[in-house]
Design a protein around this nucleic acid. Sequence first.
DNA 1: CACGGAGTTAGACTGTTAGTCTAGACTCGT
DNA 2: ACGAGTCTAGACTAACAGTCTAACTCCGTG
Lengths: 200, 200
Amino acid sequence: MRRVPAQIAARLPGAAELFADRGLEDTKVEDIASATGVPKATLYYYFAGKEEILAFLFQDALQQMADEVTMAVQAADSAATRLTAVVQAQLRVMADQPAVCRALVGNLGRAGRIPEIATAITEAYYTPVQHLLEEGVRDGSLRATEDPATTAMVLFGAVTMSALSYLATDRPLSAESLSPSILTVVLEGLLPPDSAPQES
Amino acid sequence: MRRVPAQIAARLPGAAELFADRGLEDTKVEDIASATGVPKATLYYYFAGKEEILAFLFQDALQQMADEVTMAVQAADSAATRLTAVVQAQLRVMADQPAVCRALVGNLGRAGRIPEIATAITEAYYTPVQHLLEEGVRDGSLRATEDPATTAMVLFGAVTMSALSYLATDRPLSAESLSPSILTVVLEGLLPPDSAPQES
DNA sequence: CACGGAGTTAGACTGTTAGTCTAGACTCGT
DNA sequence: ACGAGTCTAGACTAACAGTCTAACTCCGTG
């Protein structure tokens, strides 16, 4: 993939809408060309195919996610507070780029098959969150879990899926309105406050 | 879609492997034919195209999911206990049909565009779980959440995403080994047991 | 101002594959 | 034996991804 000039990169998000609405398969390269105003020949000049265009959009969104998550993780607060910030950061990025996120989730399978994307998700999210969970155990602000890697996945899934349900139904997604519902569950759990902690 | 005879239906899961590994787009109808032993002409005799074959596989798995979830929901225990059973039921179905589930999750976007599938997921999962959450508030075994619909989504996402990570990396998925990690988070939360309940 | 290289594009072309169609074969109930 | 429905091979069409070529623009440099 050649270095993509900013002028062209700026027009590509127009394609995300198509990918999100119809899926990659049903999006013709000609459609991308006319939606973005970038001619087909030029698209092929920069990208090996539409899959690479999709990957480019994902990289972009994931970079933004990585930045936001990193910032949240590096704050000076307790791990629990920072975890809250991470969830809100993810929701903010998803709210910010609804089309790309819908396309990403709608093509999770394909995305998983693109090694760069899988790596990017791991680096942007799982690894930092996993470390954060471990720190939380150390600073006493979070409960120890059997397997922090799985817990990170649980968090990611919880946030992603509920955000997606908003995006998929064209309801506006705002981090402020959704995060309390999610955070209540993952931080305090579904058992009532007065019940004794129990093994499942 | 014609009524699909059992003999043919029984062979179709062989196609799920292909869909899961390569995605729908990169799976040729000829490949499906040779993987399942059902000739291409016959596939077109019963299905309008490969998308319909995928949908058929999904319906099947989702029916199984609906059955298991319904059974779990209708047990005579407290809502909290039944919720635990629901999570385990979902994990069991996913462990049981790894290829179909990978294909399903990897094609969630497409599935969202097939109305029958979206409806089936809602009926098999969201609606019963949402009712269960409301019952839990009534019988005192679960905490009240702002929005049970969102909470159901959070649960579904948490279970689906973590299970998927196992399936995607070819680690064997067993409901027994994964459910405790998930249930600890969603039932007891990530805050330490001795911390006072707090607003986020 | 020539020159050359890189970016950009139109448009023609090729190959693959989804999906159609036809005609025949193989059931099975009557 | 007959007819209706099931099943299949193989030829065919149409659409689309991706390639290629040949031009044109816009640079900076000598």
